[in-house]
Design a protein around this nucleic acid. Structure first.
Lengths: 270, 270
DNA sequence: CGATGTGTTGACCGGGTTCAAACAATGTGG
DNA sequence: CCACATTGTTTGAACCCGGTCAACACATCG
């Protein structure tokens, strides 16, 4: 496939004609951020606090959903934001010519519908993948509450800010990693997301079909299946008996090293 | 490459086990939104209004940048948001293992640095690709101004909301289109972006190298070059004399139909 | 039981990567 | 001014990863 990673190695991105002049905020960058266990539990607690705050201030309408339910639909009139209290959801983009693309997933504490604020209509579908509960918050009411309660606006902005990075990360994954590594990286991401919900990460059942994973990662379901088989062969994951959707991940970090190893064949950046 | 579009045709995404139950806001979706000429000039005016508003309320620090300058750097401490007044910029993600990925571009009226709000540090590099000017706005000051001036917050939220869609769109492009179509779609996007800045769209000079385009689109620079040559051969674009960076696009809509034609070989969705 | 949806695996082949060579544009120093 | 290096672009040829097609296994369900 597109090994742009190696391409970038042979022809690195020109940072500029005369070299960088340095950022305005010149602090040392630490790009290697990865959530530690303490941070994860910390984030878990923050999510609980946020949900409690919203519940107290706005008494949002709770809505129970089941697998396949649409929370909001692309093109539909924007009115509410939604917060995931439980379950998980996929975000699906649809193009005018019928292509549909899974562009992300949402878990407990994530918000749905931010893309509707600017356009006045949602830009994508949000679809439940399991039984769960979302809280509907009319945007106008949220704004009014922000005027009353000063602690609310920072929470909202942080949530919107968090929407930006994931799509960029998966774009990078799709553009720079070969198929096997993309699947491994996806499993790592999934385990990390579960951990942030306080769920166990060493063993879980994927509620996604191979086709959905493949669509999200830009490959066919056959390639996903082959990649998973290979990962199982290498003991990076293990399938539980009874169905190939129960996955065990003995060591999540091993998946990360596998991803990096896929780029190792071209170790020298220059 | 990965024709997941056709894969989706043979194995369409399951919307759910029992079918969709309908969205909360059940208005008719119009997914086929594309900016008309009136909308473009309208948006152009809105951008001007926004810049004027911010200038009057906050007197932001103006900063002239040249090609290659870093506006902010991934990992750097978050403090300011930036608004593009002129020039254009690329957003580059960098992974811990050295991969770097162009994940988007910014033009006049776009904001930079939203991804830093949640983390407290920027998640990516913002790099000028030409001489231009950005306005630095300390986030704390912006929040204070929002408290004074009620019209500011909706503008800010709309800007943040607009950050969500582009990355998703390019993810879809990368995942569902073959190389030729991706390049065509990129040119269409670029022309559209220039139009929204009030610049001419029928003839312009790409300030990007083939390597940068390829990185953004998930392919090698050679493939970009070949795709451009093919588009020129088909008279969808034309190269100006003196260098292969001056591009003429006689009819932008022809590019759109070309993209759709790349999916035509599999016309029946079922 | 058959029907349907999902997952696995194999064989083939084609689009895109890789490697290589050549050219154009630009700058640099003697 | 030319020689030379550098960077970006184009084009060709060979290879290979991943898409395509097909067959089969397995589960659930009416």
């Amino acid at each position: 496939m597109l090994n742009t990673a190696t391409a970038a190695a042979t022809a690195p991105l020109p940072v500029g004609s005369r070299g960088a002049r340095g950022p305005v905020d010149a602090t040392l960058p630490d790009r290697t951020r990865r959530a530690s266990r303490a941070e994860v539990s910390d984030e878990c607690r923050q999510v609980g606090d946020t949900l409690r705050l919203l519940n107290d201030l706005l008494a949002p309408q709770r809505r129970v959903v089941h697998a396949g339910d649409l929370v909001h639909q692309g093109g539909g009139r924007f009115g509410c934001l939604y917060i995931v209290n439980s379950g998980f959801f996929k975000i699906v983009n649809q193009s005018a010519d019928g292509r549909e693309q899974v562009v992300g997933f949402k878990f407990r504490g994530d918000w749905l519908g931010f893309d509707g604020i600017a356009r006045g209509s949602y830009a994508c579908d949000a679809i439940a993948m399991d039984t769960g509960e979302v809280w509907a918050i009319p945007y106008a009411e949220l704004m009014a509450a922000c005027a009353r309660e000063a602690t609310l606006l920072p929470v909202l902005h942080a949530a919107m800010s968090r929407e930006i990075a994931p799509a960029r990360d998966s774009l990078m994954s799709v553009c720079t990693l070969p198929a096997d590594a993309r699947v491994a990286d996806f499993l790592r991401y999934w385990a990390e997301s579960l951990a942030q919900c306080g769920l166990r990460t060493d063993h879980f059942t994927l509620r996604l079909t191979r086709a959905e994973i493949g669509n999200y990662l830009g490959m066919t379901l056959e390639t996903v299946s082959r990649a998973l088989s290979k990962l199982a062969r290498d003991n990076l994951i293990a399938f539980h008996e009874k169905g190939r959707r129960d996955v065990s991940i003995p060591d999540v970090r091993a998946l990360s090293t596998f991803v990096e190893r896929c780029l190792a064949p071209v170790p020298t950046l220059q």
